[in-house]
Nucleic acid binder design. Structure first.
Lengths: 229, 229
DNA sequence: CGAGAGTGGAACATTCATGTTCCACTGAGA
DNA sequence: TCTCAGTGGAACATGAATGTTCCACTCTCG
């Protein structure tokens, strides 16, 4: 099973091999070499790279089956150029994943998850996470299986959040009948729900966020009145 | 945008045309004709059809990018045979969609959504819906855009559920701060969450269902203590 | 004014899922 | 036994996305 994904990986491996194997004596003729040299990250290159990444996040988040042409077009960049920066689709997705993890860390830091009331911290976190919408939508669309490396990174980055949830449960502020992984995933799903409804235009972004927060609190907050039962 | 999906539809239209256009006088040589004649639904054909549909639901729900070969293999059927029953991928997905809507109606009926306490009815419904897992996972995987016909059917089939939610809100049993569409989608997302976690083996099916129900109630049930605020 | 980085476009090769055809095999019923 | 529906497998055709190369253009910087 999962042949298609595997095959993508194979072809990538084959390509990388071809690139790296080239002994330095060979004529540095092709465009790939130029890209390789550009690892120095000129200002121009950095800008282009950002544009592509940004566009990719937007396009791939709203249309799971968008082609690289679509991405290039959205980035207002030739398909060739796109390939210069991200030789294969995998590379692009990996870059987006890296960016997503990066932003996740930033969001967690900004939410100050270790400070004060866990419920308030969770709320702050949800606000921050909400901004990551497109980035994670891409990942959930593109990466069905495999890509274990990314998920490991993401899990590690979210460790503080898990700690927050545990703390909340211990303090009796959060429902301890629900497991930490469940709560974490619920957080994400709530935000996905909000994102997609906002995307489809059924709802304003702010209304979506409001409902997501309210729902999240409904799920995660301890339910004192039930404790008797 | 969304070219690829469109193109699939185009090719399908082209094919159908070719089939239907054939005037009855032509020599009934090809396999397609045989399939056409088999519309009588022999017992054997019905069984094969079921097997394919069932396998498709299983495979396509757990692996979004599974090929028709994978499906055929899972159904223990030749790829040729699969194409005899469902000439194009679209046909297969449509059949699954139809089955899903069918089962949705059945689930709603079984849950007796119009009877008694809305909260209890919602709980019953969640139990019933939980069984539909694979069928809907396929649809959410395959049908990114378009397929409006299906979604219309699905929406129509779920009208009783919307009515239930409205009733619950009017009775003060369900939270009226959350819109009915939001609640409905939340119900589905909760179940998805449960399905996927169970699929990945992180959780037993029953634990997953338990948490989903508890979470759902956390979201949907009115929160009396907050009413003061 | 050159030189070279950065780019876009046309074009080609490859790969894969898909759709389609044809033929041989099997088993159940007339 | 003959027949025929149902099937599987090999094979070919197609179309799309992808990966890759080459060339011409346009800037900017020396």
């Amino acid at each position: 099973m999962f042949h298609s994904r595997q095959d993508v990986c194979h072809s990538r491996a084959r390509y990388s091999e071809r690139v790296t194997v080239r002994t330095s004596g060979a004529a540095p003729r092709s465009d790939v070499e130029a890209a390789d040299a550009g690892a120095r990250e000129t200002a121009a290159r950095a800008r282009t790279r950002r544009a592509i990444l940004e566009a990719a996040a937007t396009v791939l988040s709203s249309d799971r089956s968008a082609s690289l042409s679509d991405v290039a077009q959205a980035a207002q960049v030739g398909r060739t150029t796109l390939h210069r920066y991200f030789p294969e689709r995998t590379d692009l997705v990996e870059a987006i994943a890296a960016e997503a993890v990066e932003r996740t860390r930033a969001a967690i830091a900004a939410a100050r998850v270790d400070d004060g009331d866990p419920a308030a911290a969770l709320r702050r976190l949800a606000f921050e996470y909400f901004e990551l919408g497109p980035w994670y939508m891409v990942l959930f669309n593109e990466m069905a299986e495999g890509e274990t490396a990314f998920w490991a990174d993401a899990e590690e980055a979210e460790e503080p959040v898990r700690q927050l949830l545990r703390r909340g449960q211990e303090d009796g502020v959060l429902d301890d009948q629900l497991s930490v992984p469940w709560l974490l995933r619920t957080l994400w799903w709530m935000l996905f729900n909000a994102w997609s409804m906002a995307d489809e235009g059924d709802l304003s972004r702010s209304d979506a966020l409001r409902m997501a927060l309210r729902s999240l609190e409904g799920v995660a907050l301890a339910r004192p009145e039930e404790r008797a039962g």
